[in-house]
């Protein structure tokens, strides 16, 4: 079964996204903080990460590199945030994030993207 990790500063964002993604039939885990998110990612194997935390990708932790070096395939990473400035977006892509989406999200569009991503993974 596919596993999706959600990590957002706002508990309502995490709750609403888990409700939207609940229809996909994947197992959804919610991390309470950025630190908990990183610990979960290193401890287990996930198909997809949806997060609103930018700092783990831009603080020198090289999170994506560390995930890539493991034997298990790294999760696809979607960052979802209210931020829209070009500098932040380019920095995220440079650090290995796969996709950036901005709030407010359209649930059908999100479902389509996530479903496509999950089906394209081995």
């Amino acid at each position: 079964m596919r596993k999706i990790l959600l990590a957002f500063p706002s508990p309502i964002a995490a709750e609403s996204l888990s409700l939207v993604l609940g229809t996909l039939g994947a197992q959804i885990i919610v991390a309470a903080s950025a630190r908990a998110m990183v610990e979960e990612l290193m401890a287990d194997s996930y198909s997809l990460l949806l997060t609103g935390y930018l700092a783990p990708f831009m603080c020198g932790d090289d999170l994506v590199d560390r995930l890539s070096r493991r034997s298990a395939p790294r999760p696809t990473i979607f960052v979802i945030s209210h931020l829209r400035c070009e500098h932040s977006l380019l920095s995220l892509y440079e650090s290995g994030v796969d996709q950036f989406l901005s709030f407010p999200l359209s649930p059908p569009r999100l479902l389509r993207k996530v479903a496509e991503e999950l089906s394209s993974r081995p």
């Binding site: 500063p9 700092a55 603080c59 020198g60 932790d61 931020l83 500098h87």
Partner: peptide, 12 residues
């Protein structure tokens, strides 16, 4: 410690 200082959620 430097990593933690870079983990502030602010764009500018």
């Amino acid at each position: 410690a430097l990593e933690e200082r870079l983990s502030i959620d602010y764009p500018y």
